[in-house]
Design a protein around this nucleic acid. Structure first.
Length: 593
RNA sequence: GGCCCCGUAGUUCAACGGAUAGAACGAGCGUUUCCUAAACGCUAAAUCCCAGUUCGAUUCUGGGCGGGGCUACCA
């Protein structure tokens, strides 16, 4: 028996009781969890029924409860507090829940069939002119986790990213490298490729600003100075040369982008994320034009006198939006339309999730509307996972002010903190050096990933670089620690045959099984809402309950070997779910720590 | 100006319209001859303001106040 099955039967039994006692058929209702301070597992809210019946909630609750205990084998007892009917489950229900879970090796995950829907998840999507920062980290961790969640929900998932590898910003770092680089390479400098290129992007900005200031000192207006600064003009020339396939520019471009990819891949590897396909903007930036032309013929778009092409979304509560400039060139929107259509050709996907910050909410509203108006049936199953920014206590991170938190630096710092902490605790005696290093990563990254993923994606979150991320309390390592302790139990304990029905359960064991049994519905809720924080919250709650159990109930030294074996199985199930839950968040579960 | 998000302990985060608003960090106190004390227990501490709907509002509606974002023929 599963928990949802129990809940369903219980709801039906309640309806029948209402009918039997009062001749009353309630509207569909949901049960809620009984609050921890009261005894019971499920609670029915009686207020609404009492109002319809014109009776006091206590009277109705009492009458229904009495009928339920007599007629429903699931329920062993009940209590009525105000208008709340708290119901306790019978021991065999607990036994059955436990056995179902214990014997299901894939508990909580749906199998992926050959006909399962295909879900594309786009995430990361960096520019190739600077290294990854904390904002990318939130994006990447969310995307990676959502991809895992959708797979656990039984979908065929494809992970993709679009790499913004062309454009004026790329030319800026190329130009600066040409002018100031003196042939510097990742090898010669020892710098990671993406950091090296980022350095020249910054160098461009500095030199450009100096030029602007100089011109303004000579009497130019700010606007004029910004437009006519030689460096900018040169960068624009370089972009044109790139578009005209100038061999030298293209060579420099592919060399520097190559450095950046090496750098990005190193960071992706550290994070344990990967992609099934990369889309490059240099390949896709011309896509979409023909789709616009087609839509123009169908009346989706219209052409203005100056030749530019627009879509009128005022009847949808939005504005008018340009999709082709008067010179016939694309805008960002055009490319995104083209890329989406390209992906439908590549994958014939049923749905697509874009992991992109909430500053682009408007953009995606428009994009989805356009695709719908162009008649694509999958346009209804596009989802913008719009996450909030990661802010500093002082506000937004600004690269120009040097307040950006670099992803690699942060990862380094997490490893170091994990090492220092582990050394201090001194529990790793006898562990080989390499294993220790791996463990520091597991713990450090676990702390970081959990810190980011426990927050609901849509919400803005604050990161304070002054305060290092915690390893105690509501953290990744807290959950990892529970897992490691259970592994230690499993190494020491003896598994013998036992009969669950003949063991008398502690209330904590029922609570634990209840918590365990919730897992599948948490996974599907998280997948449906694209929300890893539900899983993060779940594993935390599970550990809280388990730690209370561990603290108060002796597992290895139970009264009999049979009881010990039962408790070990219960603990093993918890460990399995912690492992599985953490994995859905992209976090590893250590054997020891 | 228009449109869209968000205001919860000192701080970082929770709470399908339900019970006495939960955690964690930080502060204070306690638990180890016992399965890993990165743990467990106890104490103090919060819904921005004003109305409305409701048996019941942190949650829904309206109005303030405060913060952020979008509002380019940029990407």
């Amino acid at each position: 028996m599963t928990l949802t099955a129990v809940e369903k039967s219980l709801s039906e039994a309640l309806s029948q009781s209402l009918n039997r006692v009062y001749g009353f058929s309630p509207a569909p209702f949901a049960l809620q969890e009984t609050r921890r301070e009261f005894s019971g597992t499920f609670t029915a809210v009686v207020f609404g029924w009492a109002k319809d019946l014109r009776l006091s909630p206590e009277v109705v609750g009492q009458a229904i409860g009495e009928d339920l205990v007599k007629t429903c084998t699931l329920v062993s007892g009940f209590s009525v507090v105000k208008g709340f009917l708290n119901m306790e489950l019978n021991a065999p229900v607990w036994h059955s829940l436990f056995l179902t879970i214990r014997d299901d090796s894939a508990f909580g995950c749906k199998p992926i069939s050959k006909e399962a829907p295909i879900a594309l998840v786009e995430y990361a999507s960096p520019n190739t002119n600077k290294p990854l920062h904390l904002g990318h980290l939130r994006n990447i961790l969310l995307g990676h986790s959502v991809a895992k969640l959708l797979a656990a929900d039984g979908q065929r998932v494809k992970r993709v990213q679009i790499i913004n590898d062309r454009g004026i910003h790329i030319c800026k770092s190329m130009l600066a490298w040409q002018k100031f680089g003196e042939g510097e390479t990742p090898q010669s400098s020892g710098l990671k490729g993406d950091h090296l290129v980022g350095k020249y992007y910054v160098a461009f900005d500095a030199a450009y600003k100096a030029e602007v200031a100089q011109r303004m000192a000579q009497g130019s207006s700010e606007e004029e100075a910004k437009k006519s600064a030689p460096l900018l003009v040169e960068a624009q020339d370089m972009l044109r040369a790139w578009e005209n396939n100038d061999p030298a520019v293209r060579h420099l471009w592919s060399t520097m982008n190559g450095w950046v990819y090496e750098g990005f891949n190193a960071t992706y590897d550290r994070l344990g994320v990967s992609f099934d396909q990369n889309y490059y903007e240099s390949d896709t930036y011309l896509l979409g034009k023909s789709d616009i032309e087609r839509g123009l013929a169908n009346g989706v778009f219209y052409r203005r006198e100056d030749g530019s092409v627009w879509i009128d979304l005022t009847s949808d509560g939005l504005d008018e939006k340009v999709v082709l400039r008067k010179d016939g060139t694309s805008v960002y929107m055009t490319q995104d339309v083209g890329t989406a259509i390209q992906r439908s050709k590549d994958y014939n996907m049923d749905s697509m999730t874009y992991v992109v910050g909430n500053e682009q909410d408007y953009h995606f509203k428009v994009l989805f509307l356009i695709l719908k108006k162009l008649g694509y049936d999958w346009a209804d199953r596009l989802f913008h996972l719009s996450y909030g920014m990661v802010d500093l206590p002082t506000g937004r991170m600004k690269s120009r002010e040097g307040t950006v938190v670099d992803a690699d630096d942060l990862l380094d710092e997490m490893e170091q903190t994990a090492e220092a902490l582990s050394e201090e605790l001194g529990k790793l005696e006898g562990m080989p050096t390499q294993e220790k290093k791996d463990l520091y990563r597991t713990l450090g990254y676990g702390a970081l990933k959990y810190y980011i993923l426990k927050v609901e994606p849509t919400k803005r979150m604050v990161f304070n670089p002054e305060e290092s991320i915690d390893f105690n309390g509501h953290t990744g390592p807290f959950i990892q620690y529970a897992h490691a302790r259970i592994q230690s139990l499993l190494r020491k304990g003896q598994r013998v045959e036992y009969d669950v029905h003949s063991i008398s359960w502690d209330a904590r064991e029922e609570e634990l099984v209840y918590q365990i049994a919730k897992f599948p519905s948490v996974v599907s809720a998280a997948a449906n809402s694209h929300n890893p924080s539900l899983v993060a919250q779940y594993v935390y709650d599970l550990v809280k309950v388990f730690n209370g159990y561990y603290q108060n109930i002796s597992i290895l030294n139970a009264e009999t070997p049979q009881i010990a074996a039962f408790r070990l199985d219960l603990s093993a199930t918890v460990a399995y779910l912690l492992h599985k839950g953490l994995d859905l968040l992209g976090i590893e579960a250590p054997q020891r720590m």
